[in-house]
Design a protein around this nucleic acid. Structure first.
Lengths: 300, 300
DNA sequence: GCTTCTATATTCCATAGTGGAATATTAGTA
DNA sequence: TACTAATATTCCACTATGGAATATAGAAGC
């Protein structure tokens, strides 16, 4: 490779900043360097690639066609550098630290209390938690970037150990303004009459739901919208236009404070399991033992 | 972004070289710098990421866990830099230059002669050609990285104009050692008795072939192997174990020199079209006009 | 046209970083 | 213990970097 002609990453960062902040001076401010330094970095990039990457359009600088390519490269590289740092951070394994990953719904609705309880019970141990998609979490477990995960789907990977955690249920709910509020039990056939807002179709909850519905012969529901967050769906249900299927644990609170109503459906009961997944490396880890202890007690 | 703490790309290149050439001294040789310089670059990377990336195992340097991540990042970044340079090269549009892309089979069997003829007829014009997969070619056309393409499949994109070029045919062939050499016509039903080596299933030829076979009620053939290159397949056919379906234009020569034999099949004739695709920007381009002229004449 | 305003480009300089030559250090090996 | 084949360190000439001050270019007002 043309070692001597490699661009300087700070040149690329400068280009990116100029593009994204709309000017050399502002870019300099963002990068904590002066305006002349930024100008010189743009020059250096031009020279490095042998092309003009930006040109003045009036008093503003615009990317040239080549500039666009380089800018995209800059973004790619800098974004990856960012997530590299993140990954390296996750590699800092320590004896008293557990790197935990959870799915979005679990992170929103179950994790906060768990972490508080844990911190109280084991003040010397630390849990480093983050949310992510099931897929990504699996990868991170498998590649040693995390120690343990709480999931809505059991991963199937030779290096990942799974155990059951909680029984959950997918329930049909509506808001106070909906005609079915307080309706009691409805027949199965009525499901097709309703108007749905659901989590996106690749979420674990949807996988369970779609399979369960298919089992009882319902192939499609009238879905008005697919949304990425449970809380947003709960918001939308308040309007009274729609109903939704949601995991029970995530709406427990709304149900008890009467923010949502659970519509029972004759002959429909969708059970599922929440899972604890971990890597072999955590088998003798004290923090993970303590945390699993706590996970089990909270339910017992 | 942490502008001041960005790694130097040459540090990453050094890391990569050390890993891939198995030593600091050899890496230095590859990069045309001395061994001390390489060592210092490794040091600098360690400092930059705050972690040791390689450590001595005996007299050899091995990547640490963190080192593996950084090495992967280095590869990503440097490889993309490489293809960025390639792309920038393709942006060098000029009046007398045509950036042409062709699929593998066309590039191997039809292009060489076309280019020779063109160079002779229009010594002042230049054609810059490259081979690629249909998918990638379409993208490059659409994003302005190339001007024209010769394809086995017509792209469906609003900015890409297509016109028919040649009629082609997909034919069944075998080598001299095969029992069917010189057999004349065989019945359709015998197709399932043969043993096939075909182009990979996502190639344009296969798309045509699979569709045609399906139309006459043949869902699957006994495929012994899928191979990425027509020439390799022709090699393999010489062994006499297998037969193959191949585009006629790519075996024309082998058929006439008796390197291959075409097995006719009763009631099976698979026609298809080869296409000329180009972007709107080439509409007034002199080189593209001349080239299309030539493409049409060669066929008449 | 002339001035003013705002943004980018240039120049000059102190300083930090780079690569090479020579040399020290380390781990394996006879 | 001496030898060998690696990597690490040191020192130095040289280049590149960023800041302060200053020049220049385009837009807008008069």
């Amino acid at each position: 490779m043309e070692y001597r002609s490699l661009p300087d990453l700070r040149n690329l960062a400068a280009l990116r900043a100029v593009v994204e902040h709309g000017g050399v001076a502002e870019a300099g401010r963002q990068l904590n360097i002066g305006q002349p330094a930024v100008t010189k970095r743009l020059r250096a990039l031009d020279t490095c690639y042998g092309l003009q990457l930006m040109q003045r359009e009036g008093r503003r600088l615009e990317l040239t066609v080549a500039g666009v390519r380089v800018y995209e490269y800059a973004r790619l590289v800098l974004d990856h550098q960012h997530s590299l740092l993140d990954d390296l951070d996750s590699l800092q394994v320590s004896e008293n630290n557990l790197r935990l990953e959870v799915t979005g719904s679990i992170g929103e609705h179950l994790l906060p209390e768990l972490l508080l309880n844990f911190a109280e019970a084991y003040p010397d141990y630390r849990i480093q938690s983050r949310m992510g998609y099931t897929r990504r979490i699996q990868t991170r477990l498998a590649t040693g970037l995390s120690d343990m995960a709480l999931l809505e789907q059991a991963p199937d990977h030779p290096d990942i150990l799974v155990q059951k955690w909680l029984d959950d249920e997918v329930v049909l709910v509506c808001g106070k303004a909906h005609p079915l509020w307080g309706c009691g039990m409805i027949p199965l056939a009525e499901l097709k009459q309703l108007n749905y807002v659901l989590r996106e179709s690749r979420s674990s909850m949807r996988v369970t739901l779609d399979k369960a519905l298919q089992d009882i012969g319902i192939e499609t529901l009238p879905i008005a919208m697919e949304v990425g967050s449970t809380d947003t769906i709960v918001e939308m249900l308040q309007r009274g236009q729609h109903v939704s299927f949601l995991p029970r644990f995530s709406v427990e609170e709304a149900l008890s404070t009467e923010g949502l109503y659970r519509i029972k459906v004759q002959g429909l009961r969708i059970h599922r399991t929440l899972w604890i997944a971990r890597t072999r490396t955590t088998l003798n880890n004290v923090v993970s033992e303590a945390f699993i202890q706590l996970l089990r007690n909270k339910v017992g």
